[in-house]
Amino acid sequence: MKVKYYTGNSLAEAITKAKQEHGSDIILLDSREIKNTLDGSKIVQVSISVDEDNGKVKAWNPPAVKKNQKALKPSEVETKEDFNSVISNILSRKPKTLEQEKKILEELAELKEQINKLQQSAVNDPLPLPPVYEQILSALQEKGFNKKMAESLIKRVYQLTPKGPKASKGEIIFALKKELREKMRFFDISALKAADRQKVIMMVGPTGAGKTTMTMKLAAHPQIFAQREVAIISTDPYGPSEALKAFSRMSGVTVIEKKRHDELGALMRQLKDYDVVIVDVAGNSPFAPQFVKKMEEYVKIVKPHEIFVVASLNMDLEDLLEAASLYMLLKPTGVILTKIDESRRIGKFFTLMEELELPVVAFGDGKRIFIDIALPEEGYIFEKVFEGLA
């Protein structure tokens, strides 16, 4: 017996070189990576055992491919070349002379099987949670979080909280707030009210969302537009509401009725000296025919600097997302969430934020114009979400 060495860029290449010189009856003794002294790259070196005889050895070549062989479709290739098939084919070739190769491939097959079992186990057997985590998970879902988001949050907190299963309810909620904080986006109201040029704001949203009420609240709030010269344009086909007329008398804010698109352009030019012009677009179903086209006409004429989508949190989450998503075609810059006081499932706020990816401008929390509005602050929403949990 004689030991010889061959190198190649891969194990297969090195073995092929050996077989081409000594035929297929070689015994693989060892394989290892070595450094190429010429360029520093890694190559594979194999050592083989061959018989010392004087007979001429027939050179080995890879099996030839038949010229008329029918080409396989990609799906057929994948089926024939799956991991276990490749291993079986190699092992059946030379079980006596490829013992080392056989051992390596068998170990790879076993390792792959173990990995598959672990992955399947992770899917079928989710990580069990201690009772305190399960309680908070259930409470989050009752608060309006969808199941997927609630489970993801709880599992992440469980894995990252230093005390793990021994964490208290307060510590878990503290960690939850940290995770939720990263999902919040708030509109910069200070930059909006401090603008040195006229700001045109367009309020859009489905019927009954509270656009007119929030229009008045923005105009009256001392930290928003109460100190600016504000004009409100109502596009309601039935004219300004009685509440809007009363608000105009009490606050001194100019309220103008315009029903036709062709009147808006001239009106906007007449209002050029106002600091803020808020266009209260009449409520309409986003599923109505020509809805998007009508909204785009308003955008072209009004040329708003900001478009705020007004959405009511007392709606079913799926309906809320579907309606709000259609307004996304207008490329809005912020969202106003109303009727907080009419919903006990405030957790849907976070799902809405994740789906729309819009900053929150304000919260409507009641019907009183001069009082029931909240600026976007994490403390406000956390108080609503975690009320009764701590």
Rank of each mutant, 00 (worst) to 15 (best):
A109E: 15
A64H: 02
L98E: 15
L153W: 01
G170R: 05
F186S: 03
K70P: 02
P130M: 06
K147C: 04
N146M: 09
P130L: 12
V157T: 02
K155R: 13
A175P: 00
A139Y: 13
K73I: 09
K103I: 07
P130Y: 12
K67G: 14
A139T: 07
Q69D: 11
E171L: 05
F187S: 01
A167M: 08
Q141K: 15
E182F: 10
K103Y: 13
K177D: 03
V65C: 01
P131W: 03
N84E: 14
K143P: 01
P128G: 00
E151S: 11
K67S: 13
L118S: 02
V86E: 02
N84T: 12
Q100H: 11
I136A: 07
N89P: 02
E110Q: 14
K94Y: 13
T79M: 10
L111K: 15
R181D: 15
K80M: 14
K183S: 10
E107H: 10
M149N: 07
I136G: 06
S75N: 11
S75R: 11
P162E: 05
Y133T: 03
L72P: 01
N116V: 07
G144P: 06
E182V: 06
I115C: 03
P74L: 08
K147H: 14
V86Y: 00
N61S: 15
E171T: 07
Q135M: 06
L105G: 02
L160N: 13
I115H: 11
N124F: 13
A175Y: 05
K67Y: 15
E134Y: 01
E142A: 13
L160A: 12
I172E: 07
E171W: 07
T161G: 06
S168E: 02
P63M: 00
E142L: 13
Q69E: 14
V132Q: 12
K102Q: 09
V65Y: 01
K102F: 04
V77Q: 09
A59W: 05
Q135W: 03
Q159A: 12
P95V: 07
K166I: 12
F187V: 05
T79R: 15
